[in-house]
Structures are given as C-alpha cells and as structure tokens.
C-alpha cells in the first residue's frame, strides 16, 4: 500500500504561502469575530462548543448545528473550543479528511490529545471557560472539571448560548411537525405495559429511586410509542420524561399533539397511568421543584445534560451510566424481533435492486456517487412502511470510500467506474424497524491487495458472526475477533466494530455494541457487525450486517449465545480470495447464502423481480476452496 498522495487539492493546506483552501472550505472569520465579541461581554477566556443537543443526540436538528456553523466542519462528532486567539476542533479518524476539506485556516484540527490539556495550555490562570450546560452531558462535565481542578481555570455554566447570539436570525427555526402514536401492529408492548415494567425495575433498584428522568430522545419515543421528525433521519421529538411510581410527566410542546394523541396518553387525569403534560421549556424548573422534596432521582450520566443535573442536590441524585429504559429497550421481545427482521427482508430487496442497477449502469458511465445515493434512497422510499433513510447515504467511490463517513453532494461527487471499488452504506427507517447495511463492490479487476484486504474484512465479519460465547459477555471481549484477520497482516480500522439498532428508532442505538462502554450481550439484542479497512487516498472497504443475539447449541449444557445475521445481501464474489478462507469460513458463508435465498428469493418472486432473482441465485452460488 502507498501512503496518501501529497499536494491533494481536496483538502486545505494552511502551511503553504498563501494558504490553500479547497472550494468546500467555509469562511468562518466573521462568525468567530461575532462569538468572540460575546465571549468578551461574559469575560471568558475560552468557550466550549459541543456537537450535540440538550439530549446528547448523535444526530441533531439544523438549529442545533452550532459546532458546524461556527467551524464549517459538519461531521456528527467533534468538539470545538474557541479562545480569543485560537480556535480548535477535536474529532475522530472517521472525520479527519472531511474536517480538512471543510474548515478554513482559522481552525486547528486535533487528531489526538485531550481538550482539557489544550485548555490548560491556552487559558491563563484565573481564566473562565464558558459552556452551555444544556449541551454538555454530566459525564463530559465531570471529566473536564476533574482535569481543571486546582489549576485556577474555571468552568462557567452559562444558560444563554453564545453561538446562538452570534448566529442570530440566520439560525434555523425549531421544528413543529405533529407528534403521533405508532399503530399498535408496529409496537412490542403498549406504553402502559412499558411504564409498568420500568416502574418494577425502579422498585428493585438498590438505591430505590423515587423518580427516573429520561433525557435521551429515543427513551421517551420508545416508552410512549410516539414518533415525529424533529431530527433528520431520526423519528424523534424534543422531550423529557419524569417518571415516578405514582405519576408520569412528559415535557413537550403540547400544541404538537392532536386530540386523538392526547386521549391515547390519558392526559385528562393525574393518577399513576395518566400522562401529565408540561411545557418542554419548564423541565429545569420542574425538576428543581421536584428535587426540593424527599426524593431520589435516577439519571443517566451519558444522556442527562449538566443543566438539569446542576439543579438536583447531590444527595438526591442516583447516577447510572444508562437508565433502565436503555437496558429494557435493548432487549427486543419476540414481536419486536419479528418486526425488525421483516424490515430487513424488504431492505435486502432494495439493496439487491440497487446492486443490479449499478451492474447495468456503471459501465455506461452514467452513475455518480450522488445519483447512486439518490437512486437507492428512492428505492427505499417506495417500500412498505417507509419513513425515509435512517442516515445520510454513504455512497463512496475510490479514494472517497477511505473516509468512513463520506457522503457525496450534488456539487461535489465522483463518477462510479469499473476501475474502482465502490462502498455503499445505507439504511432505512420503516415503521417496523431501522436498517443499516454496507456492501463494497468492484466491477472490474481489483488488485491483489484490494482482494486480500476485502477478504480479510469478510473473515473478520464471519469470525465474529459465528462465535459462540457465554451469556452476559461484554461486547468489548468479542471485538478482537472482527480484527484478527486484519491484525495478522498489520491492517486495522479506526472505528467501532458494531452498534445496537432500533425498532424505528436510532440507527446507532446505544448501549449495545462492542466497546468498553457498551452493556453485556444478551439474548434478544440486535447489533451491527461491521469491520472495515481504509487505505487513505485510495479505497475503502466495509462489510456491515445486522445480527440478533440468540441462544447457541453447545455440546455441553450452559447459557451460551451466538449471532443470527438478519441482513440478507450477498458479498462481492469478485473481491473474495477463497484461498484465504478456512473450511469453517466457507461453510458459514455457504449456509448464509442459502439463508439469503430462502428469505429474499420468495419476496423477489412475489414481486416478479425476476432479473433480481436471477442475480441473487448467481451471487449466492456455493463457494469452494
């Protein structure tokens, strides 16, 4: 493999004279000047701009895209800090090239190193470091505060957001679409059943909390089986829930609920199964008032913002990494499992239709990354129960695929060609489930290195998918299996190995996954399995499937688990080097291909998609060494 080429014109070069900025860079000079004016008024030496909203959402509404507005960098993860002289962004390897494409030379990009150390170096003693308490999790604040202790630099909570003041009238408005109840056929249990289950968890909790504060948007959406569209690709609405053993308080913009939805929630009473509506903006005052009594409030350290935490006396708060709702939601019941699986069969039809279309049209030279993304998005929208894509489609050809989260635009994209590898990572939101799948293909002659890298990524996917492990094993213990085949030859990937997925909820549904802050694996959980390999400046590979955690049959008795893959699209035979695969790999692959035929074949037949059916049969023929 060759190192990424120098002198590229797609990224900035701030060390050249004059500095080089690509067309994609955003001029932030005026924006920074406006923010620094506000910082001066508040006597701040630095101001922290996080990448999230008041609910610690991974994907946020346009009006919450403060870090993107001030820095130009639009990736979903990354924190900015602005001082009177400097401005800096920290982000992970998925977004380094994107940041170099979008930021101008006012900004430093930090690929590593922690933010508090930089703040300690840049802010003078007695300096005040401002932040919006609603946009920082308790976890983030505690870590930051710990680092600054004894340094004579002080974190200052300011409830007025200074970026918003600088943004002014250009800031997009708040959403106001209706909030609706999901039809019963698409829910695993009624909201009353869910409330009862959560209450019994609270009762059995060692700290016996009197109330549970739900801050993450998917927690409230799940609990009440309600949905809306406040955040792109996510069917959520801005809300909090304060649940006690005798009351339910839902903080929301009431005008967005129809009379029918109000009745569904029993809002005209105050007993234990009635939902009392309070205005969204009242949550801080209401939590503060509730906390003045003889109470104990359970919160999540990851999802609760510091603005709510700071109004609860410390002796009245129980901090857990995740709320019981997160844990209960992660284990899908049999109805939810069936719903999620059904959505994956329809989604496989979409991806297969797309791959067949690409095979016909790429050689004609008529497809680019953007038109491809539009095509697959349109296919999904035509499916039953569709509510659009579950994230911005990643359609990346050649070197662009080396950026794990690259998405093309109408203006800037790359033509698909038989000479390059192509990666498509996409998913749908359907009323019965959320999907997410990645396939990488090559329609011409791949290099030996590309075939080896692809096959090793596939080996990692198979090694993890077929593992048998004890119940309640932490995902992080399994993570190395997905990397083993790559590590053996000195290759790796810079992102996580997988994530939970929701029933018409988050595409990245925490806390299931393979990292240290994920919960232990148990029956009924769904996770993605997605190893990859990225050769900077050349190509990228990712093979992603969604799998259900199921009981494993073992020779000796015991509680053992394995994965049942529910994504049903074959891999690219053109990129598989069978000589690298073990007999176990081949046996697994051929069994998986048989399952694809059984699950998707009848659906293609039913719809008379005969070309796609022929393609499926061809691409799922048994492989041999």
């Amino acid at each position: 493999p060759q190192a990424g080429s120098l002198g590229r014109e797609d990224v900035r070069n701030c060390s050249s004279n004059p500095p080089f900025l690509p067309v994609t860079a955003v001029n932030t000079t005026m924006r920074l000047a406006a923010l620094r004016q506000q910082m001066q008024a508040w006597n701040l030496s630095a101001y922290i701009i996080t990448d999230t909203d008041a609910h610690m959402s991974e994907y946020i509404g346009k009006h919450d895209e403060r870090r993107a507005w001030i820095s130009g960098f639009s990736g979903t993860a990354g924190t900015a800090v602005v001082t009177m002289r400097k401005a800096a962004v920290w982000t992970d390897s998925r977004y380094w090239t994107q940041a170099e494409r979008q930021m101008d030379c006012n900004w430093e990009l930090h690929r590593e190193g922690d933010i508090p150390s930089w703040v300690l170096a840049e802010v003078p003693a007695e300096g005040r470091v401002g932040f919006d308490p609603f946009l920082m999790s308790v976890d983030f604040w505690e870590n930051f505060d710990l680092e600054l202790q004894g340094s004579k630099r002080y974190l200052v909570s300011i409830t007025t957001n200074l970026v918003d003041l600088a943004w002014g009238s250009e800031r997009p408005p708040l959403p106001s679409q209706p909030i609706y109840a999901l039809p019963e056929e698409f829910t695993g249990s009624t909201w009353q059943e869910k409330v009862s289950t959560v209450r019994s968890y609270m009762k059995n909790h060692t700290m016996a909390p009197t109330a549970l504060l739900l801050s993450a948007l998917d927690e409230t959406a799940w609990l009440f089986n309600l949905r809306s569209s406040d955040i792109p690709y996510n069917p959520f609405f801005y809300s909090y829930t304060l649940l006690t053993d005798s009351s339910i308080r839902l903080f929301v913009n009431k005008s967005r609920l129809s009379l029918e939805t109000l009745q569904y929630l029993n809002t005209n009473c105050t007993s234990s199964m009635c939902v009392q509506l309070e205005d969204y903006s009242q949550v801080r005052d209401s939590v503060k008032a509730y906390a003045s009594g003889d109470v104990m409030i359970l919160i999540s350290i990851e999802y609760t913002n510091y603005g709510l935490y700071e109004v609860i006396p410390k002796e009245k708060v129980v901090i857990n990494m995740y709320t019981p709702v997160m844990g209960i939601k992660a284990v899908k019941n049999s109805k939810e499992q069936a719903l999620l699986k059904a959505s994956h069969v329809r989604d496989a039809v979409v991806v297969i239709q797309y791959l067949v279309w690409l095979e016909k049209n790429v050689p004609k030279g008529t497809v680019d990354e953007f038109s491809g993304a539009e095509y697959i998005d349109d296919l999904r929208r035509k499916e039953n129960f569709s509510s659009g894509p579950s994230f911005e489609t990643i359609s990346a050809s050649g070197l662009n695929a080396a950026l794990a989260h690259y998405s093309p635009t109408k203006e800037v994209n790359h033509k698909l060609s038989s000479d390059e590898m192509y990666l498509v990572d996409s998913g749908g939101q359907y009323w019965d489930g959320t999907t997410d799948i990645t396939r990488t293909v090559h329609w011409g002659t791949p290099t030996a290195f590309q075939k080896e890298a692809y096959t090793r990524v596939l080996m990692g996917n198979i090694d993890l998918s077929r593992i048998i492990f004890p119940a309640n094993t932490p995902g992080r213990i399994l993570d190395a299996l997905a990397r083993k085949a790559l590590w053996e030859v000195g290759l790796n990937y810079g992102h996580g190995t997988g994530h939970g997925i929701g029933n018409f909820l988050c595409v990245h549904e925490w806390p299931v996954g393979f990292q240290s802050n994920n919960i232990n694996m148990n029956k009924g959980m769904f996770t993605s399995i997605e190893p990859g390999y990225y050769q900077d400046g050349e190509f990228g590979i990712r093979l992603e499937d969604v799998a259900l955690v199921v009981e494993a049959k073992t020779k000796y008795p015991g509680a053992y688990l394995t994965f049942e893959v529910v994504s049903f699209v074959p891999y690219d035979r053109n990129l598989i080097d069978v000589s690298l695969l073990s007999p176990e790999h081949l046996q697994y692959l051929n069994r998986y291909y048989q399952t694809i035929r059984e699950k998707v074949g009848p659906e293609l037949q039913r719809r008379q998609l005969l070309e796609e059916l022929a393609w499926l049969e061809e691409h799922t023929k048994p492989l041999s060494a």
Partner: peptide, 24 residues
C-alpha cells in the same frame, strides 16, 4: 454506519463499571 471509537475520556469510568459487572 460505522460507530465512533469510544473516547479515552470516558474509557476509564466505563472500564471500571464493566469489570465490576464482569466479575459479578
């Protein structure tokens, strides 16, 4: 879609909790 790698800041707290639950 590829998930981010856990930030080092929260790794310590998370590991402590995970080890506790694992040994239980």
């Amino acid at each position: 879609m590829a998930p981010r790698t856990t930030s080092l800041a929260s790794l310590w707290v998370a590991s402590t909790l995970a080890i506790l639950s694992w040994s239980n």
